[in-house]
């Protein structure tokens, strides 16, 4: 009850921090899409390169986020961004690579060889094939990777409050340091709700981006 009152009294602050939180994740995941999707497509050309890249990306994701933030302080301090928004965004870009690269790679590699052959046989160049056939067919799986990255990194961003990146993690870190369960619970619930909301929103985007011709099959 106390927590609800606290949350109610601080709605403005919650909204402000939620926006900070989302802006970190949105910027970082958007940049990650721009890097990871082309990488995922490129590595379909060679199994060996694909294995190496996916291994590297998996290693990346095993580094604990607090350790990653710690590592970036000495690396980015010379540029005046040892803590705060920039290292948070960089960390999330790195964490987002694996789910997006892996899903893009799997989806493109999974395109029915008959469709590829039909495309080549009709005189499509490889970029036309990508744009007209392979990417449209891969969209649902690529978007699933983006959703995984976004949801996972909403959690990581909560920890970024410790390096002064702001966001809903502030409630949690203060709740802990001030032994204030109201702030703690408010932060934890808000982060969870945000993750669910973002996932639903991205599911909608996924549906809009997916060709109607593909969803018919799923329903049938």
């Amino acid at each position: 009850m106390e927590t609800l009152t606290y949350a109610y009294d601080n709605l403005d602050l919650i909204a402000e921090r939620a926006i900070e939180h989302v802006s970190i994740v949105a910027v970082a995941v958007s940049i990650a899409v721009v890097t990871a999707v082309p990488i995922g497509i490129a590595i379909t050309q060679s199994k060996r390169v694909a294995d190496a890249v996916l291994y590297l990306a998996s290693m990346m994701i095993t580094v604990p986020s607090i350790a990653l933030f710690g590592l970036m302080i000495p690396l980015l301090s010379p540029f005046g961004h040892g803590i705060g928004y920039v290292p948070a965004v960089i960390a999330i870009i790195l964490y987002s690579q694996l789910p997006i690269i892996r899903n893009t790679y799997a989806a493109i590699a999974d395109v029915d060889p008959a469709l590829r052959e039909a495309g080549i046989g009709m005189g499509m160049s490889s970029s036309q094939r990508l744009r007209q056939v392979e990417i449209p067919l891969a969209i649902p799986v690529i978007m699933a990777g983006v959703r995984t990255a976004a949801v996972m990194n909403i959690g990581v961003t909560a920890i970024a409050a410790y390096i002064g990146a702001g966001g809903l993690g502030e409630f949690i870190s203060r709740g802990i340091s001030q032994s204030d369960p109201r702030q703690l619970i408010t932060g934890a619930v808000a982060v969870s709700l945000l993750a669910i909301a973002v996932d639903l929103l991205l599911a909608l985007v996924q549906k809009l981006l997916t060709s109607k011709g593909l969803s018919i099959g799923a329903a049938a």
């Binding site: 008959a114 039909a118 056939v133 449209p136 060709s211 011709g213």
Partner: peptide
């Protein structure tokens, strides 16, 4: 081709 190869994302 035998597998027809119609693009499912296109009308």
């Amino acid at each position: 081709i035998q597998q027809i190869g119609l693009f499912p994302n296109k009308t």
